[in-house]
Structure formats: C-alpha cells, structure tokens
Design a protein around this nucleic acid. Structure first.
Lengths: 220, 220
DNA sequence: ACGGATAATACTTTATTCATAATTATGAAT
DNA sequence: ATTCATAATTATGAATAAAGTATTATCCGT
C-alpha cells in the first residue's frame, strides 16, 4: 500500500478532479452529470461522488435539481455583468488593504511577479503571461490578509472560470492589460492606497468591457 | 404519514434544521457534531446527514476535519474585524445600486418597513425591531438586483450568526441604530446613491464598534 | 513512577443494496 | 394522424453494512 501522504478524504479528491474537468470545459455548462458513469470512470461508489457534488453545488459550479440530477452551471451575460463589478469592488479593496499591510519584502516579491509579467509580454508568451497575471492578482489578495475577502473573491473567480472568457479576454488586450498592471504596481510602490484601489477596480472592469466587445464582434 | 408537500430532498431539510440549531446556539461553536447521535435523533440514516454537513461546511458553519469528524465553526474577534468591513463595503454597494434600480413602489415598500422599525423602537419591541431591521437590510440587498452580490452577503451574514453578537449589538444602541436607518432612508428617498452608500457602510461599521465596546466592558 | 508502545475501541469513510420518483416510449382511442 | 394514458426503465435518494484509521487506555519496560 502506498503511503497516503495527503490525508485528504476521497470526496475531496473527487471534487477537485471534477472542478478541473469543469474548468477545462470537458464538462460543458448545462451538461448533465451522470453519477453512475462518473463513479464508474473513477472506480468509486456513488456515495463519495454525491458528497463531492454537494461541495461543487455550494461553490456554484453545478446545480442540483431535486430528483432531476446534477447539471453544470450555465453562466449568462447578465451573470458576467453582475460578477465583474463585484470582483472589481473586492479586488480594489484588496489593493488598498495591501498597501497598508505589506512590508518591503512583500513589495519586492510582488515586483518580481510583475517583472515576469513584463518579460512574458515582451516574448509574447501568452500562457506565461496568463499565469503571472493570476499570481499577481492572487498575491495582492493575500497581502490584504483577510481570509473572508480572499474566500469570496476566489469563489467568484471560480464561477467566472465556467465561461471560456478568462484567457480569451486577456489575449486580445495584452498590451493594455500590461500597462494597467504597471500603473497598479506604481501605485503600490508609492503607497497610494486610494489610487491602487481605483486602478485595480478599473483594470477589472476594462477586462469585462474587452470581453463584451469581443462577443459583440463575434455576434456580428 | 404526513404528506410531503415540499419535494425538497431530505439532506436539504436536515441542513436547514441543523442551521437553525447552530444559529440558536443549541450547537455551540467548537462543539463536536456527533453523526450517529444526530442521525438517531432525526430518525434518519447517516448518509443524508453527511451530505447535509458538506453543505454546511461550504457555508462555513461547520468545519470538517478529515478522519476527525465535524465541528461547529468558531469565530474569532479577528474574523469579526475581517467580516464587518467586508459586509459594510458590500451592503454599501447594495444601497447605491438600489437607488439606481428601484422604482416608486419599491421605495414605498421600503418606507413601510422603515415605519415598522420606528414603531417597534417607540414601543420598545426588541424582537420586532430586530426582525424589521433584518427585513430592511434584506430588501435593500434585493433591490440592488444582483444575485451574486446578494449571495455573498447572505453567506457572510450566516457566519456572523455563529456569534451571539447580532441581537446583542442592536439592543445596546437601538436609538442610534434607528437614527442611522432614518438617514439611510432619507438618502434613498432623495435618490442620493453616494450618500446612501456611505451611510449604509458607516451604519454597519458602527455596529461592529458597539460590539467591540460591549466586549471590552464585559472583559473588565 | 513515568514514558513509550501496542492493542482495542470507536468513529469516519466508502461501498453495496434497495426503494421511490420521474421521464420516456409505446399503444390505444378519438 | 395526433394526443393522452399507462407501463417500464432508468436514475436519484436513502439505508445498512463493512473496512480502515485515529485516538485512547492499558501494560510493560526502563
């Protein structure tokens, strides 16, 4: 028997695997989640799978219809219009809090991530840029040092991942995104909380706008 | 056998019953939740109970320790300091959005609730006041018409209910709370979104401060 | 007498089985 | 030919049982 280093319960592992499949759009929004089939695929019984689905349901990734089964959540344009301003508000607050709470070492760590962002953009490494971008935001959220604020943002971002928007919305406006990041970084370095909050807020809204333009042009 | 009017799943009913027991502090923070005992009490098997606990866990009401069982979440003063400003931010936003989205009928409905608040305060009906207060906040949140914003606030408020603070923090400052509500109501009626946001924000923070003072005096 | 190790007990976790409800398909009647 | 009703099949929801892991208590050794 292999030593189980991670003492994590089976239903948690299953939840994580399903999360990844949903984010990878292997399970499409609206699709029915066949309990028997998945349980069979994973070589487990339905009990831990059902418990995993309860977890995903409260994360908003799936919807459980009583006596009807489980379906992957569908996100509407309306939902995006509701969620983006909310994340903008919350991450704006993170930026402001980060200014107050971070020390010199934190700032240098953030600067290093920002440098990676600049490098990836210069070399046109989309995947790298995407990752560094995520880490940049995540780090600022953690510097705000508010467990509940972090949790709320992460939950909302999970829901956003249901849509294919995330990577796409970045690609089209890599240069603009980069400049916005520069401005945020400058505000953080200057210790200007108000400015950092405003810039972060606008940065996220501008992401939503770029996405809307993209969908408009696709519709035409 | 009573006819099951509600076609809701057993685990949902169980989750709701447990929620109420937790909010009523019949299950104290930190207390171990004995699966066998509860299942026996409710006359059900442990399977739906376990599914209910998964739901409560993602709401943050209980903590599931792998191989250790389930415990009612304990909220620290630090958590309160993290959560209150967050709710203040979010409900402030609700007030601002409500100004933009509500119509005349909505405003009248809100005014009626506010009138109930005034009446309860005058007659010193604490329970009534408490209920009207909740409805006032809830209504403004719904007027903001943002499903995700509402969800986040409700989740955070659920966690706050773990602490006994809510009713207590009101009793001590009924008059002040009433005056703050009056100001918020006036801003809403004037259609001043900025002002409504600010007042709602400060109203919630002032609730936290009153609580802190109360705990200080209790400690002394 | 104190500390560590082993064994036993208890509780979580997973699997299997069963029942109930919903949906779909088929057949009959209009 | 179309619609409605009934029956059958399939999937969800619940319960019981079995297995594995953690914790605690006891015993032995130092």
């Amino acid at each position: 028997m292999t030593a189980r280093i991670a003492p994590t319960a089976l239903y948690q592992e299953v939840a994580e695997r399903l999360r990844q499949r949903i984010f990878a759009h292997e399970l499409l929004p609206g699709a029915w989640v066949d309990e028997q089939k998945i349980a069979e695929q994973y070589g487990i019984s339905r009990t831990p799978l059902r418990e995993a689905l309860k977890v995903l349901a409260s994360e908003g990734l799936v919807v459980l219809k009583p006596r009807r089964g489980c379906y992957v959540t569908e996100i509407s344009p309306r939902d995006l219009d509701d969620i983006f301003p909310l994340i903008a508000l919350l991450e704006g607050r993170c930026a402001a809090e980060a200014v107050h709470k971070m020390n010199k070492a934190d700032l240098e760590r953030l600067a290093a991530i920002h440098a990676r962002l600049e490098r990836s953009a210069r070399d046109n490494q989309i995947t790298d840029f995407f990752e560094a971008n995520q880490e940049f935001h995540r780090t600022i959220q953690e510097l705000a040092d508010n467990r509940w604020l972090l949790q709320v943002i992460q939950d909302l971002r999970k829901v956003l991942k249901l849509s294919r928007i995330h990577s796409l919305s970045l690609e089209g406006r890599l240069q603009q995104s980069l400049e916005e990041h520069r401005a945020i970084m400058a505000a953080l370095e200057a210790g200007d909380a108000r400015q950092a909050e405003q810039l972060m807020h606008d940065h996220l809204l501008s992401g939503r706008e770029a996405l809307a333009r993209m969908q408009d042009s696709k519709a035409a």
